[in-house]
Amino acid sequence: MAKDATTSVNRRSDIISAAIEVFAETGYYRATTALVAERAKISQPYIFRFFPTKEALLVTALEVSWARIIESFRQVVESASPEKLEKDLIIAYEKILEDHRNEILLQMQAQTIQEDSIRETMRNGFREVRQIVLEAFRKAEIGNPEQSTMLFLARGMLCNIAEAIGMPELKET
């Protein structure tokens, strides 16, 4: 890859990382591309070289956050024994929550945003995670895989809430 192309990819990644932080901390509606640019240590117009709108930037940030969860779950599904599958998925998600807290907070905020592209991105992410977990639970012959999947996803959402409001006791089992 040429140096200019590498720099461009790195800058795009820096912008997405900065956007995740700013959107998670400030909220989508209060966040500005100027704040994102400041966090990324670039000029505001440079953002628009990669993202035509703030909404497009948010969609990409959400896609990155969902991709991290999806990839992590796929790795678990490929390597976990049926007996440890659910526990290993929980551990993988807790690791994401610990290492990429802002991405999870971003997703939580995005659940309330009504723009079609954002809602579709959220639906796609949830749909794919649900499908991965459901298929894995079926393959592992976990009893009532549909209900087990729903409870697994509900527990993940409760973990998100516990993290967001600082109530770790909600995560205790």
Rank of each mutant, 00 (worst) to 15 (best):
R138V: 00
S148Y: 06
L89I: 05
I142N: 08
L89Y: 06
S148V: 04
W66I: 02
L62C: 13
M122C: 09
I118T: 02
E135F: 10
N144I: 03
Q114A: 10
Q111R: 15
N102W: 06
M157D: 06
K41R: 15
Q109R: 07
K54C: 06
L105N: 01
L89S: 04
A140D: 01
R68C: 08
E103D: 13
A56P: 01
V59G: 13
A154K: 10
D99S: 10
L97F: 03
Q131G: 12
Y93G: 01
E83V: 09
V133H: 03
E86M: 00
I91P: 01
R68G: 06
A140S: 08
E55M: 09
E94K: 11
R68F: 02
I132D: 08
P145C: 02
F48Q: 12
M157S: 10
G156A: 08
K95T: 14
E38K: 09
A92I: 08
N102G: 01
I47R: 00
F126H: 15
I118F: 04
R119I: 07
E94V: 01
E38N: 08
E103I: 05
Q131P: 03
E120D: 10
Q44F: 04
P52A: 13
E98F: 10
A56D: 15
D88C: 04
A140Y: 00
E120T: 10
E55W: 08
K87N: 12
L151M: 14
A67T: 06
P45A: 11
A67C: 07
E83P: 00
I47Y: 01
L35C: 05
R123Y: 14
Q114T: 11
A34Q: 15
R74M: 04
D116K: 10
L62N: 05
Q111W: 09
K95L: 13
G125L: 02
F51M: 02
A67D: 12
A140H: 03
N124I: 00
S43A: 15
A61P: 00
R101W: 07
T149D: 06
L105R: 04
E135Q: 12
L134P: 03
P82C: 08
D99N: 12
A37G: 11
K84C: 04
L134V: 03
L153V: 01
I142T: 12
Q111E: 12
Q107E: 10
S43Y: 10
I47C: 07
T149N: 11
N124W: 01
Q44I: 04
E55D: 14
R74V: 02
A136T: 07
I69V: 11
Q147E: 15
E120P: 00
F126I: 08
F126C: 11
I104M: 12
A61F: 05
P45C: 11
D99Q: 13
S117I: 09
T53H: 09
A37S: 11
I142D: 01
I96D: 07
I90D: 14
Q75P: 02
E98P: 02
A67W: 03
F152R: 03
A92N: 00
N124S: 11
L89W: 02
M122H: 08
F152V: 08
I42Y: 06
V76S: 03
R138L: 08
I90L: 14
F137P: 02
R101V: 03
M122S: 11
T112S: 13
D88Y: 00
T53V: 02
D116E: 13
I90W: 14
F137V: 07
W66K: 03
Q109E: 12
G125P: 04
F73A: 10
P52F: 05
R74N: 14
E94A: 09
F137A: 07
T112L: 12
